[in-house]
Amino acid sequence: MEAYLLNLGVLISLYAILAVTLNFIMGYAGIYSLAHAVFFGTGAYAGASVALNFSASIFVMVPTAMLCAAALSLLLALPALRVRGEYFVAASLGLQVLAVTVFAEWKAVTGGIGGLIGIPPVDIAGFEIYSPGSFFILSLVTLAAVVAITRLLVRSSFGRSLKAIRDSESAALAFGKNIALIKTTSVVISAALAAIAGSLYAAYMSFINVESFMLDTSVLIMAMVIIGGTGTQLGPIVGAALLLILPGALSYLSFLPQTEIGSIQQILYGLGMAVLMIFRPGGIVGRGRAETGEGEA
């Protein structure tokens, strides 16, 4: 039981990292990306490759993963500079589909659909971390660090510039802000931080394949942010916890027929998403509609 809760805790922490980093560009820069799973995946594959071939040390694995994701994120920054709103969403969707194809076909690195197996546990100064208990602490500490970093950034002058761009690009331009640089930097930071979650995920699961990094995952992360509350500090974490606990909790409803439980879970998950958006569009933590941010073209 304890291990089950710890396992859930690890997953929540890792997904919370993803949600927090996505919230960083969604909530503060107005960049609504449907490609966050790409950086999650890039981090996971990069981390796993390093761990399998060179060293499982966290100080080698994580930075490499971050670098790879940061480099790739320039592909997302490109459309972010050119278009807004639904056009950008579609562009990020395109990137997501392309990335899934590459994940599934670049067999030398990703193992194809079969994925990578036997990824060694992460190593911190000679200690191997793989039990749910110790890994939970590691992921929690990482989450805290990521939250601290984004919080610091949001409150700095960089964060103020971001919000200025989100609210009105032309006004920000008039104030002499370098919009291209600020937007690109925010995308790069977000992707690099998401890659940390990816590499830890790979080490924890010891198995990854493309199915964990598909469009559904991107939507799930986005749903976590929006359901929790876009542009809030706590929202993404609450959203991640809620969406990961819900399916597990549902499987305890023993009066449901076992064969249909999977479908019922999915139906409730889907309906829950819709109902929350209808009655609480600002998210659970959100203070109302002012915080949701508009994504119009």
Binding site: M26, Y32, G85, E86, V89, V219, M222, A223, I226, I227, T230, Y269, G270, L271, G272, M273, A274, M277, I278, P281, R289, T292, G293, E294, G295, E296
Partner: peptide
């Protein structure tokens, strides 16, 4: 609600 709120509801 923003364009994205609609998207999430629709996806659900």
């Amino acid at each position: 609600g923003s364009f994205f709120t609609v998207f999430v509801a629709s996806f659900g």
